[in-house]
Computed example of a mutant assay.
Amino acid sequence: MELLNEVAHISGKPGLFKVLKPTRTGVIVETLDAAKQKSVVGGQTRISVLKDISLYLADHQDSTLPLADLFLQIHAKFNGVLPLEPKKAADAELFAIIADVVPNYDSDRVFASDIKKILSWYLILFTHVPELFPAKAAKAPKAEKVETAEKEPKAAKKTAAKKATK
């Protein structure tokens, strides 16, 4: 999940942005959506790189779960299809979803607005940066190998039979 070093949230702006390169007065960013709009963000603007964000856990005072690991857990549970829309969901539904994914999250320090952001970011990343998430392994190629292995001896028998008749 090293790609999260290039993805950031800009305070006061919706969505996520890909950090392209620094300038003398700030950074050039590109929106992570179909529009791919580029803009310059000034140095006074608060930019949070997703790699540096984590979720509080109740295990210990300093215990946290990095956002990359949280996204992988959400992906393993829901595979890109959340049972609700984060922006329209009730707080109780949001807390139920996060408790289902991370049962030991710190309910005192994690707010519904945080969960909304995390789930919205997950959907954006799943849609526009799918290479962040592992693809499910298909079992069909293994079955094909078994079939071809069975066909090879038959083909060898046919060639042996042709040589014997000649």
Rank of each mutant, 00 (worst) to 15 (best):
L57R: 06
V29I: 03
K77L: 06
K88Y: 05
E144R: 15
E144M: 15
I74A: 04
P86N: 14
L119V: 00
D52M: 00
D100L: 11
L125M: 06
V40G: 09
K139Q: 12
W121N: 00
K139A: 12
Y105G: 06
E147G: 07
T23F: 12
K139R: 14
E150P: 00
T31E: 01
A76R: 13
A58Q: 06
I28M: 05
L50V: 04
F71R: 09
G43Y: 11
I118K: 08
I98Y: 02
D69G: 12
P134T: 00
Y105N: 02
T64P: 05
K117C: 09
V40L: 10
A92H: 02
T148G: 10
L94R: 02
Q61I: 15
D100W: 07
F17N: 05
T23Y: 12
D62A: 14
K142E: 12
S39I: 00
Y56N: 11
L67W: 06
K157G: 07
P14Y: 10
Y105P: 07
E147M: 13
L125D: 05
T25Y: 09
K38A: 03
V29C: 01
D33M: 10
E131K: 08
V49R: 11
K157F: 06
E150L: 15
L57T: 06
K154R: 12
D69F: 04
Q73S: 14
F126P: 02
K36E: 09
Q44P: 03
E147A: 15
K36F: 05
T64V: 08
K38Q: 12
L82D: 10
V40C: 08
E147Q: 15
E131I: 07
P141M: 09
K116L: 10
R24N: 08
V110S: 03
N104G: 07
I124N: 00
F111H: 14
A34K: 13
S48P: 08
A35K: 09
A156H: 09
D69C: 05
V27P: 04
Y56F: 07
L123C: 05
L20E: 10
L67H: 06
D114Q: 01
N104W: 07
T148H: 15
L84P: 01
A92L: 02
T23N: 11
V19N: 04
L70T: 02
L119I: 01
Q61H: 15
T25F: 11
G15E: 01
V19H: 04
N104V: 07
V19T: 09
G12F: 03
Q61E: 15
L119W: 04
I53Y: 07
T127Q: 03
F17D: 05
V27F: 08
H60S: 10
